[in-house]
Simulated assay, not measured.
Amino acid sequence: MLPAHHRLAEIFQENLKGPLTEELFIELQHCLKANADYCLDMNFLNNQLIQARRTKDVKWETHITAQMDWLRRTGKVVMQ
């Protein structure tokens, strides 16, 4: 889980108490963007992983799973 996901949960809890301040609303937007980027990147890699497995390309599969692990830990995609 990324720090943005933790912060998103915290902001959600604040929102349950009442309307968000402008600062928290802006932070919420940043967290939502980080989450959307993460989901899109993970989906892209997952689609590549499916293709690697279908073609039985073990080297490609290993590379993609390493990229997915890195994305899970850092929130960033390694482009090579």
Rank of each mutant, 00 (worst) to 15 (best):
M1N: 10
M1V: 12
L2N: 06
L2S: 04
P3M: 01
P3Y: 04
P3G: 06
A4H: 12
H5S: 11
H5V: 05
H6R: 09
L8P: 01
L8M: 13
A9G: 08
E10M: 06
E10N: 03
E10T: 04
I11P: 05
I11S: 00
I11H: 09
F12N: 08
F12S: 03
F12P: 00
Q13R: 10
Q13L: 15
E14K: 09
N15H: 08
N15Q: 10
N15F: 05
K17Y: 02
K17G: 05
G18I: 07
P19H: 02
P19S: 08
L20E: 05
L20A: 01
T21A: 07
E22A: 15
E23M: 08
E23V: 12
L24F: 06
F25E: 08
F25G: 03
I26Q: 09
I26G: 11
I26F: 03
I26R: 11
L28D: 05
Q29S: 09
Q29Y: 01
Q29G: 05
H30S: 11
C31K: 07
C31L: 10
C31M: 11
L32D: 01
K33V: 08
K33N: 09
K33L: 11
A34C: 14
A36N: 12
A36W: 13
D37R: 05
Y38L: 01
Y38K: 00
Y38W: 10
C39H: 03
D41P: 00
D41A: 02
M42N: 01
F44W: 09
L45V: 02
L45R: 00
N46C: 07
N46V: 09
Q48T: 02
Q48S: 04
L49F: 05
L49V: 03
I50K: 13
I50C: 01
I50N: 01
I50H: 06
Q51D: 13
Q51F: 13
Q51C: 08
R53T: 15
R53P: 02
R54A: 09
R54N: 13
T55D: 13
T55V: 12
T55G: 05
T55E: 13
T55N: 11
D57S: 12
D57N: 15
D57G: 07
V58F: 07
V58T: 15
V58Q: 14
K59R: 13
K59I: 13
W60L: 12
W60K: 15
W60I: 06
W60Q: 07
E61L: 01
E61S: 13
T62Q: 15
T62E: 14
H63C: 05
I64N: 00
T65Q: 11
T65E: 09
A66G: 14
Q67C: 08
Q67W: 13
D69S: 03
D69G: 02
D69I: 04
D69Q: 11
W70D: 03
W70A: 10
L71H: 04
R72S: 02
R73F: 11
R73E: 10
T74E: 08
T74C: 08
G75E: 08
G75Q: 02
K76Q: 13
K76Y: 12
V78H: 14
Q80W: 14
Q80P: 11
Q80D: 15
